[in-house]
Computed example of a mutant assay.
Amino acid sequence: MVKRWIMVCLGLLLGTMMYAQEFSKVASKEPELIQKGEDKLYCPICGMNLKQYYKTSHGAILSDGTAKQYCSIRCLAADWEAIEARLVKVVVTDVVSEKLIDAKEAFYVIGSKIPGTMSQVSKLAFEKEADAVAFMKENGGELGRFENAFAKAKASLSDDVDEFIKKKQKGMYPMGEKIYHKACDKEKIHLHDFNTISELKIFVKKSQACGELEEKELQAVSLYLWEILRFAEHNHTHKSVIHVEKSEKCPVCGMFVYKYPKWAARMSYEENGKKMSHAFDGVKDLLKFYHNPSQWGNYTKLNDEAYTILVSDYYTQEAIDGKKAFYVIGSDTYGPMGKEFIPFATLKSAQSFLKDHKGSEILSFDKISEALVYAQDK
Protein backbone atom coordinates (compact mmCIF):
# COMPACT_ATOMS: atom_id res chain seq x y z
CA MET A 1 0.00 0.00 0.00
CA VAL A 2 2.79 2.38 0.98
CA LYS A 3 4.70 1.43 -2.16
CA ARG A 4 1.65 2.16 -4.30
CA TRP A 5 1.13 5.53 -2.59
CA ILE A 6 4.77 6.45 -3.23
CA MET A 7 4.43 5.50 -6.89
CA VAL A 8 1.29 7.64 -7.27
CA CYS A 9 3.00 10.62 -5.65
CA LEU A 10 6.05 10.19 -7.85
CA GLY A 11 3.81 10.01 -10.91
CA LEU A 12 2.03 13.22 -9.98
CA LEU A 13 5.34 14.93 -9.23
CA LEU A 14 6.88 13.87 -12.54
CA GLY A 15 3.74 14.91 -14.40
CA THR A 16 3.83 18.34 -12.79
CA MET A 17 7.54 18.74 -13.52
CA MET A 18 7.03 17.73 -17.14
CA TYR A 19 4.18 20.23 -17.55
CA ALA A 20 6.24 23.00 -15.99
CA GLN A 21 9.12 22.17 -18.31
CA GLU A 22 6.86 21.92 -21.35
CA PHE A 23 4.93 25.11 -20.64
CA SER A 24 6.22 27.97 -22.73
CA LYS A 25 5.28 31.63 -22.63
CA VAL A 26 6.31 32.00 -26.26
CA ALA A 27 3.52 32.52 -28.79
CA SER A 28 2.92 29.30 -30.73
CA LYS A 29 1.49 31.29 -33.64
CA GLU A 30 1.57 34.88 -34.84
CA PRO A 31 0.92 36.99 -31.72
CA GLU A 32 -1.84 39.57 -31.61
CA LEU A 33 -0.05 42.89 -31.22
CA ILE A 34 -2.12 46.00 -30.53
CA GLN A 35 0.67 48.57 -30.39
CA LYS A 36 1.55 50.61 -33.45
CA GLY A 37 4.93 51.64 -34.76
CA GLU A 38 8.22 49.93 -35.43
CA ASP A 39 8.73 49.07 -31.76
CA LYS A 40 5.37 47.31 -31.35
CA LEU A 41 7.07 43.97 -30.68
CA TYR A 42 8.65 45.22 -27.44
CA CYS A 43 7.29 46.01 -23.99
CA PRO A 44 7.52 49.81 -23.49
CA ILE A 45 8.47 49.39 -19.82
CA CYS A 46 11.17 46.70 -19.80
CA GLY A 47 11.89 46.24 -23.51
CA MET A 48 11.27 42.50 -23.55
CA ASN A 49 10.13 40.75 -26.71
CA LEU A 50 6.34 40.34 -26.57
CA LYS A 51 6.40 37.22 -28.72
CA GLN A 52 8.67 35.50 -26.20
CA TYR A 53 6.40 36.44 -23.29
CA TYR A 54 3.12 36.50 -25.15
CA LYS A 55 1.20 34.19 -22.81
CA THR A 56 1.66 36.66 -19.95
CA SER A 57 1.18 39.81 -22.03
CA HIS A 58 -1.37 42.48 -21.14
CA GLY A 59 -2.60 45.39 -23.21
CA ALA A 60 -4.06 48.78 -22.36
CA ILE A 61 -6.48 50.42 -24.79
CA LEU A 62 -6.53 54.19 -24.23
CA SER A 63 -9.15 56.87 -24.81
CA ASP A 64 -7.11 58.63 -27.52
CA GLY A 65 -7.24 55.53 -29.71
CA THR A 66 -3.72 54.36 -28.93
CA ALA A 67 -2.73 51.16 -27.16
CA LYS A 68 0.17 49.83 -25.13
CA GLN A 69 1.14 46.20 -24.75
CA TYR A 70 3.22 44.84 -21.91
CA CYS A 71 5.07 41.59 -21.35
CA SER A 72 3.31 41.10 -18.02
CA ILE A 73 0.81 42.40 -15.52
CA ARG A 74 3.82 43.64 -13.55
CA CYS A 75 4.80 46.08 -16.32
CA LEU A 76 1.15 47.12 -16.65
CA ALA A 77 1.20 47.93 -12.92
CA ALA A 78 4.45 49.86 -13.33
CA ASP A 79 2.86 52.04 -16.02
CA TRP A 80 -0.56 52.33 -14.35
CA GLU A 81 -0.18 55.85 -13.02
CA ALA A 82 0.68 57.13 -16.49
CA ILE A 83 -2.31 55.50 -18.22
CA GLU A 84 -5.07 55.25 -15.62
CA ALA A 85 -6.73 58.56 -16.50
CA ARG A 86 -6.93 57.54 -20.18
CA LEU A 87 -7.65 53.85 -19.75
CA VAL A 88 -10.64 52.36 -21.58
CA LYS A 89 -9.95 48.64 -21.32
CA VAL A 90 -7.32 46.12 -20.24
CA VAL A 91 -6.84 42.98 -22.32
CA VAL A 92 -4.81 39.87 -21.57
CA THR A 93 -3.69 36.79 -23.48
CA ASP A 94 -5.73 33.66 -22.88
CA VAL A 95 -3.12 30.94 -22.28
CA VAL A 96 -5.16 28.32 -24.16
CA SER A 97 -6.42 30.11 -27.29
CA GLU A 98 -3.67 32.78 -27.29
CA LYS A 99 -6.30 35.39 -28.10
CA LEU A 100 -6.52 38.73 -26.36
CA ILE A 101 -9.54 38.83 -24.07
CA ASP A 102 -11.07 41.33 -21.64
CA ALA A 103 -8.94 41.06 -18.50
CA LYS A 104 -11.94 41.70 -16.25
CA GLU A 105 -13.65 38.63 -17.69
CA ALA A 106 -10.58 36.39 -17.35
CA PHE A 107 -9.79 33.80 -14.68
CA TYR A 108 -6.28 34.10 -13.28
CA VAL A 109 -4.07 31.42 -11.78
CA ILE A 110 -1.87 33.25 -9.28
CA GLY A 111 1.31 31.78 -7.81
CA SER A 112 1.64 28.59 -9.84
CA LYS A 113 4.90 26.69 -10.29
CA ILE A 114 5.45 28.42 -13.63
CA PRO A 115 8.02 31.23 -13.13
CA GLY A 116 6.62 34.75 -13.15
CA THR A 117 7.37 37.31 -15.86
CA MET A 118 9.21 40.28 -14.32
CA SER A 119 7.79 39.11 -11.00
CA GLN A 120 8.53 36.49 -8.39
CA VAL A 121 4.89 35.32 -8.51
CA SER A 122 3.36 34.11 -11.77
CA LYS A 123 -0.03 35.32 -12.96
CA LEU A 124 -1.57 33.55 -15.95
CA ALA A 125 -4.98 34.27 -17.47
CA PHE A 126 -7.63 31.98 -18.94
CA GLU A 127 -10.85 32.74 -20.75
CA LYS A 128 -12.59 29.70 -19.27
CA GLU A 129 -12.68 28.89 -15.57
CA ALA A 130 -12.42 25.16 -16.35
CA ASP A 131 -9.10 25.73 -18.14
CA ALA A 132 -7.76 27.66 -15.15
CA VAL A 133 -8.82 24.93 -12.73
CA ALA A 134 -7.22 22.22 -14.89
CA PHE A 135 -4.01 24.25 -15.02
CA MET A 136 -4.04 24.62 -11.23
CA LYS A 137 -4.32 20.86 -10.75
CA GLU A 138 -1.06 20.41 -12.61
CA ASN A 139 0.81 23.51 -11.46
CA GLY A 140 -0.73 24.74 -8.23
CA GLY A 141 -1.62 28.34 -7.52
CA GLU A 142 -4.89 29.95 -6.56
CA LEU A 143 -7.83 31.08 -8.64
CA GLY A 144 -8.58 34.77 -8.90
CA ARG A 145 -9.84 37.54 -11.13
CA PHE A 146 -8.06 40.53 -12.63
CA GLU A 147 -8.48 42.69 -9.52
CA ASN A 148 -6.79 40.00 -7.40
CA ALA A 149 -3.87 39.52 -9.79
CA PHE A 150 -3.42 43.25 -10.30
CA ALA A 151 -3.53 43.98 -6.56
CA LYS A 152 -0.74 41.44 -6.02
CA ALA A 153 1.26 42.89 -8.90
CA LYS A 154 1.02 46.41 -7.46
CA ALA A 155 1.76 45.27 -3.91
CA SER A 156 4.92 43.42 -4.95
CA LEU A 157 6.10 45.99 -7.49
CA SER A 158 8.86 47.46 -5.34
CA ASP A 159 10.19 44.05 -4.27
CA ASP A 160 10.03 42.76 -7.85
CA VAL A 161 11.97 45.77 -9.13
CA ASP A 162 14.66 45.28 -6.47
CA GLU A 163 14.91 41.56 -7.20
CA PHE A 164 15.27 42.00 -10.95
CA ILE A 165 17.78 44.82 -10.58
CA LYS A 166 19.94 42.42 -8.56
CA LYS A 167 19.65 39.83 -11.32
CA LYS A 168 20.46 42.37 -14.03
CA GLN A 169 23.47 43.62 -12.08
CA LYS A 170 24.88 40.10 -12.21
CA GLY A 171 24.07 39.37 -15.84
CA MET A 172 22.42 41.74 -18.29
CA TYR A 173 24.04 45.02 -17.22
CA PRO A 174 27.65 43.71 -17.46
CA MET A 175 26.86 42.04 -20.79
CA GLY A 176 25.30 45.25 -22.11
CA GLU A 177 28.20 47.38 -20.92
CA LYS A 178 30.69 45.08 -22.61
CA ILE A 179 28.78 45.21 -25.90
CA TYR A 180 28.44 48.99 -25.69
CA HIS A 181 32.15 49.62 -25.22
CA LYS A 182 33.32 46.99 -27.71
CA ALA A 183 30.77 47.13 -30.50
CA CYS A 184 28.62 50.28 -30.41
CA ASP A 185 29.09 53.41 -32.49
CA LYS A 186 28.62 55.92 -29.67
CA GLU A 187 28.18 58.82 -32.07
CA LYS A 188 24.96 57.27 -33.38
CA ILE A 189 23.25 56.83 -30.02
CA HIS A 190 21.59 59.89 -28.48
CA LEU A 191 19.63 58.67 -25.49
CA HIS A 192 17.50 61.80 -25.10
CA ASP A 193 15.89 61.03 -28.48
CA PHE A 194 13.87 58.14 -27.08
CA ASN A 195 10.70 58.08 -24.97
CA THR A 196 10.78 54.38 -24.10
CA ILE A 197 13.24 51.53 -23.97
CA SER A 198 11.32 49.88 -26.81
CA GLU A 199 12.01 52.89 -29.07
CA LEU A 200 15.70 52.71 -28.17
CA LYS A 201 15.80 48.97 -28.75
CA ILE A 202 14.31 49.13 -32.25
CA PHE A 203 16.74 51.94 -33.13
CA VAL A 204 19.75 49.89 -32.02
CA LYS A 205 18.42 46.94 -33.99
CA LYS A 206 17.57 48.77 -37.22
CA SER A 207 20.55 51.13 -37.29
CA GLN A 208 22.96 48.36 -36.29
CA ALA A 209 24.62 50.96 -34.07
CA CYS A 210 26.06 48.03 -32.12
CA GLY A 211 26.39 45.63 -35.04
CA GLU A 212 24.44 42.41 -35.55
CA LEU A 213 23.05 41.27 -32.20
CA GLU A 214 21.15 38.24 -30.97
CA GLU A 215 17.92 38.99 -29.08
CA LYS A 216 19.55 38.50 -25.67
CA GLU A 217 22.46 40.76 -26.62
CA LEU A 218 20.07 43.38 -27.96
CA GLN A 219 18.08 43.32 -24.72
CA ALA A 220 21.26 43.51 -22.64
CA VAL A 221 22.71 46.54 -24.39
CA SER A 222 19.30 48.25 -24.43
CA LEU A 223 18.92 47.74 -20.68
CA TYR A 224 22.42 49.06 -20.05
CA LEU A 225 21.82 52.14 -22.19
CA TRP A 226 18.35 52.87 -20.81
CA GLU A 227 18.71 52.00 -17.14
CA ILE A 228 22.39 52.74 -16.46
CA LEU A 229 23.98 55.08 -19.00
CA ARG A 230 20.93 57.31 -19.48
CA PHE A 231 20.76 58.12 -15.77
CA ALA A 232 24.53 58.57 -15.55
CA GLU A 233 24.35 61.17 -18.32
CA HIS A 234 21.45 62.92 -16.61
CA ASN A 235 23.19 63.00 -13.23
CA HIS A 236 26.40 64.44 -14.65
CA THR A 237 24.87 67.07 -16.89
CA HIS A 238 25.70 70.71 -16.17
CA LYS A 239 22.55 71.96 -17.85
CA SER A 240 19.80 73.58 -15.86
CA VAL A 241 16.95 71.10 -15.51
CA ILE A 242 13.61 71.34 -13.75
CA HIS A 243 14.02 69.95 -10.27
CA VAL A 244 11.03 68.07 -8.89
CA GLU A 245 10.66 66.74 -5.36
CA LYS A 246 9.42 63.16 -4.99
CA SER A 247 6.41 64.41 -3.05
CA GLU A 248 5.20 66.79 -5.79
CA LYS A 249 2.05 65.79 -7.63
CA CYS A 250 0.63 67.40 -10.74
CA PRO A 251 -2.34 69.51 -9.54
CA VAL A 252 -4.29 68.57 -12.68
CA CYS A 253 -3.91 64.78 -12.97
CA GLY A 254 -2.53 63.93 -9.53
CA MET A 255 0.46 61.92 -10.77
CA PHE A 256 3.91 62.11 -9.17
CA VAL A 257 5.89 64.32 -11.53
CA TYR A 258 9.38 63.08 -10.61
CA LYS A 259 8.65 59.83 -12.46
CA TYR A 260 8.52 61.72 -15.76
CA PRO A 261 11.58 64.03 -15.81
CA LYS A 262 11.57 64.23 -19.61
CA TRP A 263 8.16 65.94 -19.49
CA ALA A 264 8.53 68.04 -16.34
CA ALA A 265 7.18 71.59 -16.38
CA ARG A 266 6.83 74.16 -13.62
CA MET A 267 4.77 77.26 -12.94
CA SER A 268 5.76 79.69 -10.18
CA TYR A 269 4.08 82.87 -8.98
CA GLU A 270 3.27 84.94 -5.92
CA GLU A 271 -0.27 85.27 -4.60
CA ASN A 272 -1.23 87.40 -1.59
CA GLY A 273 2.40 87.61 -0.58
CA LYS A 274 2.84 83.84 -0.67
CA LYS A 275 5.19 82.16 -3.13
CA MET A 276 3.54 79.33 -5.05
CA SER A 277 5.07 76.69 -7.31
CA HIS A 278 3.46 73.75 -9.10
CA ALA A 279 5.09 70.89 -11.00
CA PHE A 280 3.36 69.26 -13.97
CA ASP A 281 3.98 66.03 -15.88
CA GLY A 282 3.63 67.75 -19.22
CA VAL A 283 2.92 71.08 -20.88
CA LYS A 284 -0.70 70.12 -21.58
CA ASP A 285 -1.59 69.87 -17.89
CA LEU A 286 0.34 73.07 -17.16
CA LEU A 287 -1.75 74.86 -19.79
CA LYS A 288 -4.98 73.52 -18.34
CA PHE A 289 -3.98 74.99 -14.99
CA TYR A 290 -2.73 78.23 -16.56
CA HIS A 291 -6.01 78.93 -18.37
CA ASN A 292 -8.31 78.06 -15.48
CA PRO A 293 -6.53 77.51 -12.14
CA SER A 294 -9.73 77.63 -10.07
CA GLN A 295 -10.84 74.37 -11.70
CA TRP A 296 -8.00 72.55 -9.92
CA GLY A 297 -8.31 73.96 -6.43
CA ASN A 298 -8.42 77.19 -4.49
CA TYR A 299 -6.35 79.12 -7.00
CA THR A 300 -6.89 82.49 -8.68
CA LYS A 301 -6.14 83.45 -12.27
CA LEU A 302 -3.48 86.17 -12.32
CA ASN A 303 -2.18 88.32 -15.15
CA ASP A 304 0.37 86.71 -17.45
CA GLU A 305 3.28 88.71 -16.08
CA ALA A 306 2.80 87.12 -12.66
CA TYR A 307 3.72 83.64 -13.90
CA THR A 308 7.19 82.21 -14.37
CA ILE A 309 6.88 79.15 -16.58
CA LEU A 310 9.58 76.58 -17.20
CA VAL A 311 9.31 73.62 -19.57
CA SER A 312 11.76 70.89 -20.57
CA ASP A 313 13.25 71.17 -24.07
CA TYR A 314 12.39 67.86 -25.68
CA TYR A 315 15.81 67.29 -27.20
CA THR A 316 18.15 68.64 -24.53
CA GLN A 317 16.01 68.28 -21.37
CA GLU A 318 17.19 71.76 -20.42
CA ALA A 319 14.80 74.01 -18.49
CA ILE A 320 13.66 76.78 -20.85
CA ASP A 321 11.32 79.76 -20.63
CA GLY A 322 7.88 78.38 -21.41
CA LYS A 323 6.62 81.73 -22.70
CA LYS A 324 9.41 81.88 -25.29
CA ALA A 325 9.36 78.22 -26.31
CA PHE A 326 8.07 76.74 -29.57
CA TYR A 327 5.50 73.94 -29.28
CA VAL A 328 4.78 71.17 -31.76
CA ILE A 329 1.32 69.59 -31.76
CA GLY A 330 -0.20 66.68 -33.66
CA SER A 331 2.97 64.57 -33.62
CA ASP A 332 3.34 60.82 -33.16
CA THR A 333 5.07 61.38 -29.81
CA TYR A 334 2.98 61.01 -26.67
CA GLY A 335 3.64 62.08 -23.10
CA PRO A 336 2.38 60.54 -19.85
CA MET A 337 -1.06 62.07 -20.48
CA GLY A 338 -1.29 61.27 -24.19
CA LYS A 339 -1.09 63.90 -26.92
CA GLU A 340 1.23 66.71 -25.92
CA PHE A 341 2.59 70.14 -26.69
CA ILE A 342 6.24 69.26 -27.36
CA PRO A 343 8.49 72.17 -26.30
CA PHE A 344 11.70 73.43 -27.93
CA ALA A 345 14.02 76.34 -27.25
CA THR A 346 14.56 77.08 -30.94
CA LEU A 347 12.33 77.20 -33.99
CA LYS A 348 14.87 75.11 -35.90
CA SER A 349 14.59 72.25 -33.41
CA ALA A 350 10.81 72.45 -33.52
CA GLN A 351 10.83 72.34 -37.33
CA SER A 352 13.14 69.33 -37.32
CA PHE A 353 10.92 67.50 -34.84
CA LEU A 354 7.78 68.42 -36.79
CA LYS A 355 9.25 66.84 -39.91
CA ASP A 356 10.58 63.71 -38.20
CA HIS A 357 7.51 63.03 -36.06
CA LYS A 358 4.63 63.96 -38.36
CA GLY A 359 3.64 67.05 -36.40
CA SER A 360 0.86 69.29 -37.68
CA GLU A 361 1.76 72.75 -36.38
CA ILE A 362 4.27 74.85 -34.44
CA LEU A 363 2.84 77.34 -31.95
CA SER A 364 4.16 80.04 -29.65
CA PHE A 365 2.88 80.10 -26.07
CA ASP A 366 0.54 83.04 -26.61
CA LYS A 367 -1.20 81.25 -29.50
CA ILE A 368 -2.33 78.27 -27.42
CA SER A 369 -5.97 78.71 -26.44
CA GLU A 370 -7.78 76.76 -23.75
CA ALA A 371 -9.96 75.14 -26.43
CA LEU A 372 -6.86 73.92 -28.27
CA VAL A 373 -5.47 72.45 -25.06
CA TYR A 374 -8.56 70.34 -24.47
CA ALA A 375 -8.73 69.40 -28.15
CA GLN A 376 -5.58 67.33 -27.58
CA ASP A 377 -7.57 65.00 -25.31
CA LYS A 378 -9.93 64.00 -28.10
Rank of each mutant, 00 (worst) to 15 (best):
C43V: 04
S312N: 03
T308M: 06
D285K: 00
G47Q: 07
E98P: 08
P174W: 03
E177D: 05
F164E: 13
F341S: 01
P251Y: 02
S360D: 11
A132H: 08
D185A: 05
T316R: 09
C9R: 06
F146P: 05
L76I: 05
L363E: 00
K188Q: 11
L143K: 08
L372H: 00
K29G: 13
E370G: 03
F203E: 01
K201A: 02
S122A: 10
T308K: 10
G359Q: 01
I197K: 04
I329E: 01
I320M: 04
K170M: 14
C9K: 06
F164H: 13
N235E: 15
L347N: 07
K288P: 01
N139K: 09
Y374W: 15
M172H: 08
G335F: 05
K275E: 13
A82H: 12
S24D: 12
K206M: 10
A264S: 15
W263N: 12
P115N: 07
I368E: 00
D356E: 15
D377F: 11
A345S: 08
C253G: 05
K259E: 15
S360C: 02
F23N: 01
Y315M: 07
Y173K: 02
F231R: 14
Y53N: 14
C184S: 02
I114L: 09
L225E: 02
K367I: 00
F135W: 04
F256V: 09
G171N: 15
Y180V: 03
V121R: 10
K259Y: 15
H238P: 02
D377C: 06
Q52V: 08
T66M: 10
W263K: 09
Y54I: 06
A130Q: 15
L347Q: 10
L62C: 12
E187C: 02
P115E: 03
Y54R: 11
D193V: 02
P31G: 07
L87W: 11
H243F: 11
Y108N: 04
M276F: 03
C9M: 08
G144F: 07
D185P: 02
K36N: 14
Y42P: 08
H190C: 03
Y224Q: 02
L286M: 09
T333I: 15
A20R: 15
T56F: 14
H58R: 12
L41N: 10
A77S: 15
Y108K: 06
T56L: 12
M118H: 13
G59Q: 14
A319P: 05
F107R: 06
H238D: 09
Y19P: 01
L87P: 10
K378P: 04
L76N: 12
S119L: 05
D162F: 07
I114Y: 02
S369N: 01
F280D: 03
S349Y: 07
L124T: 11
K40N: 11
A265W: 01
D162E: 14
H243P: 04
E142L: 06
N195F: 09
M337C: 06
F203P: 00
K246H: 09
